[in-house]
């Protein structure tokens, strides 16, 4: 674990891998260090942001070092089921690229539970990782300027669901009718870090 400076109000904790991030985030989210208002997990890091004037950064660093990571935190947590119409524009091409049939790709996507590792791209967007999934998906060489909301996509080791229309370079494999970000729901984001996700093949429309 390396604690890196991030200005007057924050610290960036760098870890070896995503699993270590998830385990530390689980521990910190359950019991945030005094004075910390935001905890932001990412692929290799956890950012801790303090409220102005409320605490010293060295005290926060001490609290992080003293935290006991919780590698078990995913088990028994909330699981969201997302029905997906697997008719995405990139499904056939991507399956070919990965040496799979489209059916096999869908089977891999639905076969095992995913975990929301972190967010950050847009409100309600979650980077989902599938333990043991071993995905390695290239991004599209030309990003789309408009990806429709509800698009289910893959890139790198991650899967994601676009909360609203936005540009995007991920490979689109399907679409869900579930609103993953809804301001009229509490909490508005369905895909919060630590939440489990099960994709279900909802057939074609």
């Amino acid at each position: 674990m390396r604690v890196l400076p991030s200005g007057s109000t924050a610290l960036l904790v760098e870890l070896d891998d995503l699993d270590a991030v998830l385990a530390l985030y689980a521990a910190l989210a359950e019991q945030p260090p005094d004075g910390v208002v935001d905890i932001v997990p990412a692929a290799r890091t956890v950012l801790l942001v303090t409220g102005p004037g409320r605490t010293s950064l060295s005290a926060v660093a001490d609290a992080v070092r003293a935290a006991t990571p919780r590698p078990d935190a995913r088990a028994g947590g909330e699981v969201v089921e997302l029905p997906v119409h697997y008719d995405g524009e990139d499904l056939e091409d991507l399956a070919g690229l990965l040496d799979l049939s489209p059916e096999e790709l869908v089977h891999r996507h639905t076969g095992k539970e995913w975990i929301v590792a972190f967010g950050g791209f847009a409100p309600g967007f979650g980077y989902l990782t599938q333990p043991g999934g071993q995905w390695d998906v290239p991004r599209r060489s030309t990003p789309r300027t408009k990806v429709p909301p509800g698009s289910v996509a893959l890139a790198g080791e991650f899967s994601g669901v676009y909360p609203r229309e936005s540009p995007g370079g991920w490979q689109l494999i399907g679409r869900t009718d579930v609103a993953v970000f809804d301001l009229d729901r509490d909490p508005p984001a369905l895909l919060r870090p630590g939440v489990g996700v099960r994709f279900v093949d909802a057939g074609s429309r």
């Binding site: 989210a29 208002v37 935001d38 905890i39 932001v40 997990p41 950012l47 942001v49 409220g51 972190f118 967010g119 950050g120 791209f121 847009a122 409100p123 309600g124 967007f125 909490p187 508005p188 984001a189 919060r192 870090p193």
Partner: peptide, 8 residues
């Protein structure tokens, strides 16, 4: 404040 983990 407090919602950055959700991308906010």
């Amino acid at each position: 404040p407090g919602q950055a983990a959700l991308g906010i």
